[in-house]
């Protein structure tokens, strides 16, 4: 079943078409959400909302547009909204809860020490550092970087998803990498691992 057929049948309320859409694109959507959220459960939760939005607003989908671009756009917007909501909640929440989440992360890392090799622990620590560094990037840089690294999208494809020019995407990715390198260098010098 082609993308056009899926969309046409989805517009008629065909449930099989919706199942086909979810099965075909769930990896793309979950991965895009994960690239921005860096939490598997949150990414799956947001991805579910993405597909529900697609199902409900399929009538507004233009036939000349690319289905994957539309899905990327919804996934990015939903993930950014999720990050913004979390930030608001964190602002209102107590300091204690932040400490708890950090401790939880550390406990997860420590627990791996008992049953997994040492490099697993090192990888988990590296992952935390990398996620924090990506998470601290400005919003547009973060989106461009995650689409490029997690989804291997070309500059042209990122430009279509973000509705920007290719040169803007080039500039965003250049600045994102510079910032990331700076943060990783600071961390390396401070021996934060």
């Amino acid at each position: 079943m082609s993308d056009i057929e899926i969309i046409e049948q989805l517009k008629q309320g065909n449930e099989q078409a919706f199942r086909k859409l979810v099965e075909s694109y769930r990896k793309l959507v979950v991965n895009t959400c994960y690239g921005l959220l860096h939490n598997r459960e949150d990414a799956e939760d947001v991805a579910q909302d993405v597909f529900i939005e697609v199902y409900r607003s399929v009538d507004s989908f233009r036939a000349d547009a690319k289905l994957s671009t539309w899905l990327y756009r919804i996934a990015v917007n939903r993930s950014l909204n999720h990050i913004r909501d979390n930030k608001k909640h964190r602002w209102f929440s107590l300091f204690e809860s932040d400490v708890k989440t950090e401790n939880k992360k550390l406990l997860q890392v420590e627990s791996s020490l008992t049953d997994q090799p040492e490099f697993e622990l090192e990888n988990k620590q590296r992952a935390i550092i990398l996620h924090q560094a990506i998470g601290s990037l400005p919003e547009k840089q973060k989106v461009a970087f995650s689409l490029s690294k997690y989804e291997d999208l070309s500059y042209q494809e990122i430009a279509e998803v973000m509705e920007l020019s290719v040169s803007s995407v080039e500039s965003l990715l250049f600045r994102a990498k510079k910032n990331l390198q700076k943060k990783l260098y600071t961390c390396y010098k401070k021996k934060c691992m």
Binding site: R19, V22, E23, R26, K27, V30, N31, Y34, R40, A43, E44, A47, Q48, F51, I52, N123, R126, A127, I129, L130, K149, Y150, D152, Q181, L184, Y188
Partner: peptide
């Protein structure tokens, strides 16, 4: 060190897909 850190991105690209994803949606 940077090479090792950035290689994490490669390992995260292939997530384990939840078999009950559609049911949950």
């Amino acid at each position: 060190d940077m090479k090792k850190t950035l290689s994490i991105l490669e390992t995260e690209k292939t997530p384990e897909l939840n078999p009950f994803f559609y049911t949950r949606v």
